[in-house]
Nucleic acid binder design. Structure first.
Length: 569
RNA sequence: CGGUGAUUAGCGCAGCUUGGUAGCGCACUUGGUUUGGGUCCAAGGGGUCGCAAGUUCGAAUCUUGCAUCACCGACCA
């Protein structure tokens, strides 16, 4: 490719809207352009990278035995009604009508379509197991698109689905997919970790997310500093404190705390550590026989954060997790948020493991502008139920039993999941088993955010000059950069000949044939992250040499023109 | 969904307080100059100032409404 025929589109200045480095560089290097919130056009350079990522993913999925298919992006609403997700999926699901006013959705994922397909196509256990995948555009109407293609509304995803008669077969395929994912991210040259993930409301036994480690990531990952343990913070268990609860030493005392509302206020007002305060959160419970939804109280140590995923798993708590309104709080606790405590509440009270271990603590008095000090469990307030409600924090013992928790940020680029039979059941996806009986299938699903990988790779591989692509996904393998080609016939001839030779050999080379000064060319190629520059100038032509510059190492060297081809073997 | 801010040329911004012919830098075009790290000089092209209504002789500027975009928050007990 010649730059004179190519849409280079590099920018000197960073567009103001770009927050994270990958977004800035994707705009500056001319990879993408924004169309509307969360919607991006892929320019030639960006598309080259995207296609390379796509091909690696495709090759490894095929190697793992999956068949590629392509499903429609627009899906009829009745499929979603059949699975129950028309009501459950929420506002991220973009719904639309056709000219006959028939409802459709833009596919955010394809469990419904694929399960329907397999239900129609398969009739015998002999056809199992079966893995299918597609690489296709998805649409999710995100509440807050951000970070460029990292969290766009429209994005490219590889989604694979496997179908099995039995759980052990699913587990085998799950492991094959796990290994395939490791190969994919290894080949992409990314620093990644598989981490335990929550299985969500769907249930199932196992789920792993694959995270690229980067400070700009939106997920917190809990690692052990002494083992391979890694889990999404949503999933990481906070173990019960090993120490016994200390005996009470203080008397229960009600103190006036005018205008003291937050935990920090309380700590400051009473001059106590936030760790000796408990906070009581009121959330909506599940509907009872009378058709009412009572509140549920959650008690946590002041310095801890509620883990919403763990909380949603509690049978008493409604899904999705909903915090009580001010009116509900007043009706239940006789006070405003800010003065709630567990003592005397006549609703379910669920106490976090760490909060349950406190003694002589502080809590709200269920009376505005009042708190209790010297509170002790059992003496002042019965412990009815203890659960793991909080996010782990650094320094907690690792749930694997070895070492302490360390927390890092990650970008989720893959997620594999043992789905079970939720969709197969809903869509009547069954085959005849060996005994001639209809048997509902069990499924696995396996996703990779292809477009997100491009951004994640940049987050991990850049410097002040621009992108430093891992070789496997660089838009070009090399660029030919002639010095003053317009003035030197020799330089021009050499560059043209080399370009011809490399192109013929199928090397992806960008020939910078613009009439630009060297500095402009160098800056553009460094911004775009071309791994290897072939610099052709008068000064080395007498010796029949070109200069090489490596983008990753910055090393320069000379090589005979005749030997250039050998670089690409 | 809540809060904050923004919207003026392809990009980055000024002008608005105090209403009176729409500007700067980058990019682009032409000519010259320079040529191994974003040269320099000159001359140009390009904007319904987000949209709509209002005030006014006159609105980018003042008023109101709307839209879009961005950031923050959605842990309050």
């Amino acid at each position: 490719m010649r730059t004179s025929q190519y849409l280079l589109s590099t920018l000197k200045e960073t567009p103001a809207s770009a927050e994270v480095i990958s977004h800035q560089l994707m705009l500056r290097a001319g990879l993408v352009r924004n169309l509307a919130s969360g919607l991006y056009t892929w320019l030639p350079t960006g598309l080259r990278v995207l296609k390379k990522v796509e091909n690696i993913v495709r090759e490894e999925m095929q190697r793992a035995g999956a068949n590629e298919i392509l499903m429609p992006m627009v899906q009829p609403a009745d499929l979603w009604e059949e699975s129950g997700r028309w009501d459950d999926y929420g506002p991220e699901l973009l719904r639309l009508n056709d000219r006959h006013k028939r409802p459709f959705v833009l596919g955010p994922t394809h469990e419904e379509v694929i399960t329907k397909l397999v239900a129609n196509e398969l009739s015998s256990y002999k056809q199992l197991p079966l893995s299918l995948f597609q690489i296709q555009t998805k649409f999710r109407d995100e509440i807050r698109p951000r970070f460029g293609v990292m969290r766009g509304r429209e994005f490219l995803m590889k989604d694979a689905y496997s179908f099995h008669l039995e759980q052990d077969c699913l587990e085998k395929t799950y492991q094959i997919m796990f290994d395939a994912y490791c190969r994919i991210f290894d080949r992409l040259g990314l620093d990644y970790r598989p981490v335990l993930a929550d299985t969500g409301s769907i249930g199932g036994d196992a789920s792993h997310e694959f995270h690229v480690l980067a400070d700009s990531g939106e997920d917190d990952i809990a690692f052990s500093n002494a083992s391979d343990f890694a889990a999404n913070i949503e999933k990481a268990e906070a173990l019960a404190p090993s120490a016994e609860r200390a005996e009470p030493t203080q008397a229960l005392t009600k103190v006036a705390t005018p205008n003291v509302k937050t935990i920090d206020d309380v700590a400051r007002f009473l001059s106590v550590d936030v760790k000796t305060i408990v906070k009581t959160l009121l959330v909506c419970g599940v509907e009872n026989e009378q058709g009412q939804t009572p509140l549920v109280a959650l008690v946590l140590r002041g310095d801890h954060q509620l883990n919403e995923i763990k909380t949603e798993h509690l049978p008493q708590v409604s899904t999705p997790l909903t915090f009580a309104s001010d009116e509900q709080i007043l009706a239940t606790a006789n006070c405003n948020a800010g003065s709630i405590g567990p003592i005397g509440l006549n609703i379910d009270v669920i106490i976090d493991r760490s909060a349950a271990q406190l003694s002589d603590f502080v809590c709200g008095a269920n009376e505005n502008d009042a708190h209790y000090t010297g509170v002790n469990w059992q003496r002042d307030c019965a412990i009815t139920e203890i659960a793991d409600l909080r996010n782990v924090v650094e320094g907690d013992p690792s749930p694997c039993g070895q070492g302490e928790i360390v927390i890092k940020r990650g970008i989720e680029v893959g997620h594999i999941f043992q789905l079970g039979s939720k969709y197969a059941q809903a869509m009547s996806c069954a085959v005849l088993n060996e005994g001639g009986k209809n048997q509902t299938l069990t499924m696995g699903c396996y996703g990779i955010g292809v477009s997100r990988i491009v951004a994640a790779a940049i987050e991990q591989n850049h410097d002040k000059y621009g992108i430093k692509w891992p070789e496997a996904i660089a838009p070009f393998q090399a660029a030919i950069v002639p010095m003053n080609m317009a003035k030197s016939a020799r330089v021009k001839e050499t560059a043209e000949a080399l370009y011809e030779q490399l192109s013929q050999a199928g090397i992806e080379v960008l020939f910078d044939d613009r009439k630009e000064r060297p500095g402009v060319m160098f800056a553009d190629h460094e911004l775009m992250g071309t791994p290897l520059l072939l610099i052709i100038g008068e000064r080395n032509l007498d010796a029949q040499q070109v200069e090489l510059k490596n983008r990753i190492t910055g090393e320069k060297s000379l090589i005979a023109i005749a030997d250039v081809m050998s670089l690409f073997n």
